[in-house]
Amino acid sequence: MKEHRVEIDHLFMFIEPDGPEIDALKRQGLTETYRRAHPGQGTANVCFGFDNLYLELLWLTSEAEARSPAMERTRLWERSQWRRLGTCPFGVAFRGDLASAGVPTWDYRPPYLPSHLPLDMSIQVATDSDDPMQPMLFSFPGSTAPSEWPAERRGRLQTGGGWSQAVGLTLRFPAGTAPSAALLALAAASGLELEQGEGPAYGMALDLMGADGSVTKTLVMPDGLR
């Protein structure tokens, strides 16, 4: 079996503020793990943690912050407007050095990080993510799986609903839009599956695995979270 050089840390999808997708996940038996605001970035989230990764639903809280010069290259504002602009609403974060997969990056230091942290505490963002028609691809140094988080951060994972891990991530591209070179490289290195759709919409599917190793549910986003 091929040894992966990077692992998927988490996924995000943009929704409207406190959108219906949150309750849709809860109706399917998932448990909210934590929420967080991102001052200066203009976003906030709710996260659903599994043993190996977490799913982040992200929304805009300040258009002025998200469109500020410091934030412009992230294209978070454009991604948040995917319903209107046809941009990609997804992001995939990895544990590991993106350069190990041959991916050029730039360093993003979010405004909400405490100023006393060392300067090397920055997020590696793939330069191909400058295109908002591509998912945002990035990594954060020192990331660990949710099962390894301290208890005060870990909160409630999805074991109560019978799921241990989220596996088999598939990202679907709309007709006429091809995955970037960075995404192809990271997909090969992490096991992420890519599909070319026939319609105009992006999509993502994530399999939920029980303690016995069987897949018992598949989350389909965004259509399955309404």
Rank of each mutant, 00 (worst) to 15 (best):
A166H: 00
A37R: 08
V220S: 11
R79V: 06
L183F: 13
R79L: 09
L157H: 08
G102L: 11
H116E: 15
N45R: 11
D23W: 12
S68Y: 06
V92A: 02
C47Y: 06
T218A: 08
M1G: 13
L117F: 14
S80Y: 01
V220P: 01
E148R: 14
P141A: 11
L183T: 05
T31R: 10
T43C: 11
E32Q: 15
K217R: 12
R36K: 12
A44E: 15
H38A: 13
Q158S: 09
P20T: 10
S164W: 04
L184F: 04
Q41Y: 02
T159D: 10
W149D: 08
Y54G: 03
T74P: 08
L119G: 15
G224I: 12
S100W: 09
A188T: 09
M221H: 03
R95V: 08
P39M: 07
L208F: 02
L30S: 07
L183D: 04
D207M: 02
W77I: 00
G199W: 06
L183E: 11
R35W: 11
A182F: 06
G42V: 05
E21H: 10
M1H: 07
R83P: 04
L30Y: 10
P114K: 08
A70K: 07
V6P: 00
R67H: 02
L30E: 05
Q165T: 15
D51S: 09
A44V: 07
G96W: 06
C88G: 01
E195S: 03
F90P: 00
E56V: 00
S139L: 11
E195M: 02
K2E: 10
S122K: 14
M71F: 05
Q124I: 13
G162D: 11
M204H: 03
F94W: 09
R5Y: 00
F140C: 12
G168W: 01
A44F: 02
E193C: 08
S147P: 01
P135E: 11
P135R: 13
V220N: 09
M121N: 15
G168R: 10
L171Q: 10
N52D: 10
T105R: 07
A181C: 04
Q124W: 09
G162S: 15
T74R: 03
R73E: 13
G197Y: 04
A93L: 15
R36T: 03
L58C: 06
D18Y: 11
Q134D: 02
A189S: 12
I15S: 03
A101T: 12
M133Q: 15
G199A: 13
P114G: 14
D207R: 12
R75P: 00
A93H: 12
G210Y: 03
N52E: 02
P110Y: 09
R154L: 05
L186P: 13
P118L: 04
I123L: 15
D18W: 11
D120M: 09
Q158C: 13
G29N: 04
G19L: 09
A145F: 00
W149M: 14
Y108N: 14
V46N: 05
R153T: 06
Q124V: 12
H38Y: 15
D107C: 13
M209H: 06
E32L: 15
Q81T: 01
G155A: 13
A166Y: 00
A182M: 14
T61L: 11
R172C: 12
N52P: 03
P118I: 05
G168H: 10
A64R: 10
E198T: 14
L206A: 04
D23E: 14
A182I: 03
L98I: 10
W149H: 07
A185M: 11
M121D: 12
G155T: 08
P69R: 03
R226M: 12
